[in-house]
Design a protein around this nucleic acid. Sequence first.
DNA 1: CTGTTTGTGGTTCGATCGCACCATAACATC
DNA 2: GATGTTATGGTGCGATCGAACCACAAACAG
Lengths: 203, 203
Amino acid sequence: MPRQVDHDQRRRQIAEAVWRLATRGGLEDVTLRQVAAEAGVSARLLQYYFGTREQLLLGALEILNDDAEQRARERLAMLGDAPGMHAIVRGVLLELLPLDEERRNRHLVYAAYFVRFLTDPALAKVAHDAPRALENLVADLIARGQELDQVPQDINAAAEAVFLVAGAEGVQSSVLLRQRSAEDAVAMIDHQLARVFTTTNCE
Amino acid sequence: MPRQVDHDQRRRQIAEAVWRLATRGGLEDVTLRQVAAEAGVSARLLQYYFGTREQLLLGALEILNDDAEQRARERLAMLGDAPGMHAIVRGVLLELLPLDEERRNRHLVYAAYFVRFLTDPALAKVAHDAPRALENLVADLIARGQELDQVPQDINAAAEAVFLVAGAEGVQSSVLLRQRSAEDAVAMIDHQLARVFTTTNCE
DNA sequence: CTGTTTGTGGTTCGATCGCACCATAACATC
DNA sequence: GATGTTATGGTGCGATCGAACCACAAACAG
């Protein structure tokens, strides 16, 4: 059914226009007319594919999330066959950093949506589970590293996982604001990872 | 000169209305009419005290920053005479967390402004230096803790400072989104502080 | 061949936007 | 007491907003 492909491609084309406008100027610049102009389609098409403006914002966010998940999977798969806990955790954390234009724009869009997550239940539901899931994943990986003697036993896996994810999100902001380079951010993450992933506790 | 006081009070009254509207719905809800209604004044007054809408947003942010700095000073002064490095760093980091309604709203307003910081030079200038200054302050305090043997020598003061601040900012987001309680966030900070501020490296 | 669904453009409407403009108290200065 | 400055309310205008509506082409169904 080639129709379905066209349908999704159109929605993606429009969603990308929403993202571009949101990264500049925030959600208030995401007006139906502006999106239509940016996507190179008529305003009527936005109504046809998404309906109201609220649904357009919601739909664009869903597509963005699907993208993020797929890209993350691809990059993690690129680590090879037996990556080791350290490399996997590193890959997960680096996914939170705006290391390329794609991730940078994605996190900017999230920032533009942020305040809405508190008041709009529909939006909140879309972006609710991700961070917790990440923390649990990292905590699990660290705990398995302890079983394999790659991580000291006196490390609190859950606490460190929360802190690592939070730290990554924190530097993310400063990189987005261009107050810090992406390389510095990665170095910072690696410094903390080196502390956790050490077979000998006091070297 | 009681006139001056009235003038600043009026500006503050209007700025608070801007904050309240920004915390719900983001900056797109901060329209002149809405602000006027929320502040209980006529729309004409906004023009008189701030000028254009752009200047209103800028002015409200400046007042918010002044507030934040003053409150932070007050709380740090409340620590007593000889607080010790650990307590000071803790106080600085906790200032980044939305532990009460005031700080919660403040950080929500920052979140609403976030995307604008990238494209609007005037706004960017207002909120540019704060995070770097915090990192340097924390790094300095940790380094002085090393001189006083309150912090192990093999701790990288600068690196830990950056990540502590970043971690605080990261959990801040999750607390704002009500995905984590304020108490959990404080516990996380304390867990990391306990790691840094230890006289004996391997206990 | 005819009717229905799907995709697209254009137009219009009522509401709201930012903001300029006008009127007028209250107060200060001389 | 005249005059100018400061502080306030009200009103109107052009632009833009979201969204409903209309027209039509293409594909598909029966």
